[in-house]
Structures are given as C-alpha cells and as structure tokens.
Design a protein around this nucleic acid. Structure first.
Lengths: 151, 151
DNA sequence: GGGCCAACATTGGCGCAACCAACAATACAT
DNA sequence: ATGTATTGTTGGTTGCGCCAATGTTGGCCC
C-alpha cells in the first residue's frame, strides 16, 4: 500500500470555506433528492416562494428576488408553466414584461415543497441542540447579510 | 410596477439550508475566482493537498481521501500533470495502479493556493469576531462530522 | 492451475447551479 | 429625437458531483 486512506487532508479539515462547502454539499444532496422526489428542483422552489410572498411579478423582478439569473428564470418558468404551477401573461402597461402568477396548483406544490424542506432542516441539524441551531443560523445570517450588502 | 423587489422571500431568509447554500455560494465564488487567477480549481487543490499530506498515492486512494470521484480524479490529474505539478508512473508492484507524486513545482503551486485560500477565509469571515469564528467552525465541523459518519 | 470476483484507471455521459454574451423589442430621460 | 436601460429570450460555458461500461490486473478459493 502506498499510503493515503480515507481521511481528509488536515488543511481542509480546519478551513471554514471547506467546512461550509462540505455541509452545503450535504444539504444540497438532501434538498435535491427531496425536491426531485416531488418533481422539482431548487430554482422552482425559489421562484414559487417569491411569487407567494410578493404576488404577481415580472420575470426580472423574480430573478432579482431570488438571485437567479434572468436566463435561468426563463427556463425554470417554462417548466413551472408546463406543470400548471404558474401563469405567464404579458403586462399591458409595459409590453416588455410578463406578469407571472402563482396558480392554485402552484400554491399546493409550494406547500408540498415547504414540507420537504422543513423535514430536511431537521435532518441537517440533527446533531445540534436548539440553542446551537440558533447560534448557527445567526452566524450564517450575519455572513449572508454582510456579503449581500457589499454587492 | 407589480411588486417584488430585491428582498429574499422570508421563508428562505430563515431556513438554515438556504443560509448555508448562500454563504457557500459566496465562498465558492471567492475561492473559484482566487483559484482561477492561479490557474487552478477546487479539485486541483484537494488532490495536491492530499498528495502533500499522505505522500505518493494511487489515484483510487486520492479519490477516497478527497471525496472526488475516480473519473474526476483522472481528469484533474491530467491537468495537473500537464502543468508539471504531478508525476504519474505505473506501480511496479501492482500494475493496476498509478503512483502519483507531487513535484517541486507542484509543492510551490500548493503553497500558492494555500495563500489564496487563507486570504479568502479572512474575507469570508470578516464580519465575525475571533470567538464567533471558532463557534461557527465548531458547529460546522460537528455537522460535517455527523454526516460523514452516517455515510 | 483454473476460474471468479474485486480493485484499478479510463472513457463518456448526465444533471444541477451559476454565469455570460448577444439580440430584438420596448420604455424612458434629456 | 436620440441615446440609454430594461426586459424576455436564446444559446452557450464552467465547476462539481454522480453513474455506467470497459479492459486490465491481483488475489483467492477450490
């Protein structure tokens, strides 16, 4: 045997960016699997959530609210519209825009995905106590906030 | 205007998996840009780090140590070998294996990437105090650990 | 020794997320 | 009126994480 077994290199084990991407990868696997089982993927949930919270919106506004690229919004909305979760009609007051609307089916779908997602939070944070979970989300929120502002 | 500006939907703002992927995406952008400027990418760093820590290894062992798929190890090693950062010679004692060795140039390159990476940690964790940084890495490490074990 | 299964390197492919460049149509500001 | 910005859309590219198939080689059992 020429050395090297299944232990992560030390310089990675203690590097925050590595830990974050590790945990993110795991979370991503869980979410991806859960969403896939419901016939969706990340972009779909983001868009549906934005529509539910802000009401009918233009595609550009949706992209801004969800940090999804305009071009990717198009593709995801095509899929959502094909499933009947969303309606897309031209805005009469600004003919560049489409007004995207959440349908009743779309709302149902969103609620289903909400369920998937909350279940996954539990699984993801399993080893942490409630206090620790708050600590973690607080710290992460501050990081996310900081970097969102300096954009 | 039909509502919806640049605020993230509330159900996402408080969802750990969302925060994690947000921060991870940001970290990923930083690391990706830094590595790209040095002519590398994530897989390269992982492999070089493993080689440096464990010494000459087979490709399969490298894949295990870095959680990189065997097939992706092949591609990354091709790139690293083309840059002269790594040597690949057949193992005389087991002709199925290649022995991958870190060259002097490879070590230099690794050190350069180390520098890039530590700079990025600073940028990534900027808004946190030293104590908070320890808290965060501690919590993340526990999550990573937990999920690594249940694999 | 013959036969079988496991491990290895390699090729080729897939899906998702994130991003970029270009374009035509429309709105708007000066 | 002319230029600038915004919008939806098409059509790419990249990184990362996977999976399947192939041919070669080792190790093991009988």
């Amino acid at each position: 045997m020429t050395t090297a077994d299944a232990r992560t290199p030390a310089r990675l084990r203690h590097t925050p960016s590595w830990l974050i991407s590790l945990v993110s990868a795991h979370s991503h696997r869980l979410v991806g699997a859960g969403f896939a089982a419901a016939g969706a993927r990340g972009y779909h949930y983001r868009l549906l959530a934005a529509l539910d919270e802000y009401g009918p919106s233009s595609q550009a506004a949706l992209g801004r609210a969800t940090a999804v690229d305009r071009s990717d919004v198009v593709a995801a909305l095509n899929e959502l519209a094909a499933q009947g979760f969303v309606d897309r009609t031209p805005d009469p007051s600004d003919r560049r825009r489409n007004i995207v609307t959440l349908t009743a089916d779309g709302t149902r779908h969103l609620l289903e995905l909400d369920g998937v997602l909350t279940g996954i939070q539990e699984e993801l944070l399993a080893p942490l106590s409630p206090a620790e979970r708050d600590q973690l989300t607080g710290l992460l929120a501050r990081l996310a906030d900081h970097h969102a502002k300096s954009r």
